[in-house]
């Protein structure tokens, strides 16, 4: 630092102040909308979960303490939804990522027309989940049985995929993989293209086999992408609603704790049912808060674990 800059400090601090003001002014609209449509409704939601709020014409909203939370945990359908959502999420994370990564490897190799493949694999992601659900409903109900009958695979022609809750969950996994794998693939493609060629060549010169290059160079370098994709698939599978609603509508039923219960109702749909069918808006709100906490916990653990595996170049 020389003398010249010292004399300028006062004007710099004034510039800084204006800069700060401009910064906050530019931020203000975004901050304002974030506050209005995210933070405040979220706080109100937390408040409602402790009351008997019904969202309809009622005389007063009374504070009921933890009642909604206790009721939610005693509801077998909520317990079942939590279990089935965890199973669904687990299967979905594995399947989506394996398929997406394989596709990414395929479309980054020296394949002819790979851009067409990239677009093609990505396309299902652009179709809305509701429409997708109806299309696949037709495939599972009409096409699969006929195809199975034609090739002589009688199990599938006599038992409909959507007619039994175990296979219906599988059907959900298939459809959401079909929808989501292309999107995740794009993230892997970007990561794979960023793997420096010189490192791979250096490894090759050192005598590493194709598998060793893949295992010890490519995989560690795309680890940051795994953090992102695992996070995205985890959160998206957990929040699954639209395909669930249009493909299986929460059914078919199954037996759970001695009672017939809707067999493919995932958590988001269970919350929706609590509000729409049971007309218990406050309890639905409490379930949503529990859902939020579970999701945050799972995703923080996942990000923490995945981050540890990343390497810096």
């Amino acid at each position: 630092m020389n003398d010249k800059t010292k004399t300028k400090t006062s004007s710099i601090s004034k510039d800084k102040k204006i800069e700060k003001l401009v910064f906050w002014l530019f931020l203000a609209p975004a901050l304002f909308s974030f506050l209005m449509v995210q933070i405040i409704p979220f706080m109100i939601g937390i408040y409602y979960s402790f009351t008997n709020w019904s969202a309809t014409a009622q005389i007063s909203i009374d504070f009921v303490g933890m009642k909604n939370y206790f009721d939610a945990f005693q509801d077998p359908s909520f317990l079942y939804a939590t279990i089935i959502t965890s199973i669904y999420t687990f299967m979905n994370i594995i399947l989506v990522n394996i398929i997406a990564f394989s596709l990414a490897l395929l479309v980054t190799s020296n394949l002819k027309g790979k851009n067409i493949y990239r677009a093609g694999f990505f396309l299902p992601n652009i179709i809305g989940g509701i429409i997708l659900g109806y299309i696949w409903q037709f495939i599972f109900n009409q096409f699969v049985p006929k195809l199975a009958a034609a090739v002589g695979f009688t199990y599938l022609s006599e038992n409909l995929m959507l007619g039994n809750s175990n296979t219906a969950i599988l059907a959900l996994v298939i459809v959401s993989t079909w929808q989501y794998a292309g999107y995740i693939m794009m993230i892997y493609v970007a990561a794979l293209q960023n793997v420096p060629k010189d490192l791979l060549e250096a490894a090759q010169i050192d005598g590493a086999s194709a598998w060793q290059r893949f295992r010890n160079v490519t995989i560690p370098l795309v680890a940051p992408a795994f953090t992102v994709t695992l996070f995205l698939t985890l959160v998206n599978s957990f929040k699954q609603f639209d395909v669930n609603a249009s493909l299986t509508n929460g059914g078919p039923s199954t037996m759970f704790m001695g009672k017939a219960i809707k067999g493919t109702t995932l958590l988001a749909m269970n919350i929706n049912d609590t509000s729409i069918i049971s007309l218990n808006t406050a309890q639905a709100q409490a379930k949503a808060i529990v859902f939020f906490l579970v999701l945050v916990t799972f995703s923080l653990i996942q990000v923490y674990v995945s981050k540890k595996r990343e390497v810096e170049l």
Partner: peptide, 28 residues
């Protein structure tokens, strides 16, 4: 409505799937 949609509906569904017999359906 909750009783009909969430309790009864799945019971009929069980009989329709053939997951329970007519007697089990009656009991449920």
């Amino acid at each position: 409505g909750e009783f009909r949609d969430n309790v009864l509906g799945p019971i009929y569904d069980q009989l329709a799937q053939g997951a329970v017999t007519a007697d089990e359906f009656k009991a449920l």
